[in-house]
């Protein structure tokens, strides 16, 4: 049996009458990336704070590499690093000063902490802004610095709380690259996110949480297969044939067809099918036979978004 980096059993954290974390169970094997997915207010940040020894749980148990977060907080702290939702840095200090400070707190001598700060700033492309105060940093720079601060010493478990919220696409893919590099070095990552794409790209397992509880758990593929549906998207050469195409799709696929904002596109959700290839072939054959040229035909698995909405919608079973 592989070692568990995180094990939470029946974890509860309440704030007054609000049960932010409500009997949460979570197991993260060492060396993997676990994505914790959930809408705003689902309890993701609270759960991370409990696991990172910042909040004391009101019930249940949680351990990090076998060490209880309540009874052995200092041992746990020696093995983790946390990158919070908002940059956990001193805004008034420069980037270099922040890293030197955290390096010294990590146990480096002053000289070593300086050298370490220089190396990290260079690698994260912040060397040019090393002497600027963090409050003048852009969101992307700040986040990079924040992650740099988390790997001053290599943690065994890294908590990333919504690491890319509010970042532009380029900064976001930089953060993803960094996370992948950290994982290749054997660090376990627990990542919270609202972006399904992010969980899909980084995480080997995903736990979907809502109202403080895990409502689904599995690989991205397993989660997608829990929703027995997919989609077909068609683009036509001639916009004026869209009505005709709609009739054909509705008949062949036996489903409600939506007209997309793009005047040549239309799409439909389809129920589960054993043979999507045959379905696609049949649909294209019918369109072609009716003289409706198609420029693009896509048969999609349900997106994680659909999975997410299906799982978290109020009327979900």
């Amino acid at each position: 049996m592989t070692e568990l980096a995180v094990e939470a059993v029946g974890l509860v954290k309440t704030f007054g009458r609000l049960r932010a974390v409500d009997r949460l169970d979570l197991r993260v094997p060492a060396g993997t990336v676990c994505g914790v997915l959930g809408p705003n207010g689902a309890g993701k940040t609270t759960a991370v704070k409990v696991l990172a020894t910042l909040l004391r749980p009101d019930g249940g148990q949680a351990s990090v590499f076998g060490h209880d977060v309540v009874r052995e907080p200092d041992t746990v702290r020696g093995r983790i690093a946390l990158t919070g939702q908002y940059a956990s840095l001193d805004e008034d200090l420069t980037a270099a000063e922040n890293l030197v400070l955290l390096g010294r707190l990590a146990g480096f001598t002053i000289a070593d902490a300086r050298a370490r700060a220089d190396d990290l700033l260079a690698a994260f492309d912040l060397a040019d802004s090393a002497t600027r105060q963090v409050k003048n940093y852009s969101g992307g720079m700040r986040r990079r610095l924040d992650i740099a601060a988390s790997i001053i010493r290599t943690p065994d478990l890294l908590f990333l709380d919504e690491p890319t919220s509010g970042l532009d696409p380029r900064s976001r893919s930089q953060v993803w690259d960094i996370v992948r590099a950290v994982v290749r070095q054997g660090t376990t990552v627990l990542l919270t996110t609202q972006h399904l794409e992010e969980a899909d790209r980084l995480a080997s397992r995903i736990a979907v949480i809502d109202h403080g509880r895990v409502i689904a758990e599995g690989t991205p593929g397993e989660l997608k297969s829990t929703v027995a549906a997919g989609s077909v998207t068609v683009r036509l050469r001639h916009a004026e044939q869209r009505e005709r195409a709609r009739e054909i799709l509705a008949r062949v696929l036996n489903a409600e067809v939506e007209l997309d904002p793009d005047p040549v596109a239309l799409s439909t959700r389809i129920g589960g099918t054993d043979d999507p290839t045959a379905l696609a072939a049949h649909t294209l054959f019918e369109l072609s036979g009716a003289g409706v040229p198609v420029t693009d035909f896509a048969l999609g698995q349900p997106s994680l978004d659909e999975v997410f909405l299906a799982l978290t919608s109020p009327d979900a079973a």
């Binding site: 020696g78 990590a106 146990g107 480096f108 070593d112 190396d119 990290l120 260079a122 690698a123 994260f124 492309d125 990079r144 790997i151 010493r153 290599t154 380029r170 893919s173 930089q174 690259d177 960094i178 992948r180 590099a181 950290v182 290749r184 070095q185 660090t187």
Partner: peptide, 20 residues
């Protein structure tokens, strides 16, 4: 963009971690 190659050499191996 940070180079992931650089990043990997940047992570300290277990035996070079500073003491508390």
């Amino acid at each position: 963009s940070p180079r992931t190659g650089d990043l990997e050499t940047l992570l300290l191996p277990k035996d070079r971690q500073p003491r508390r």
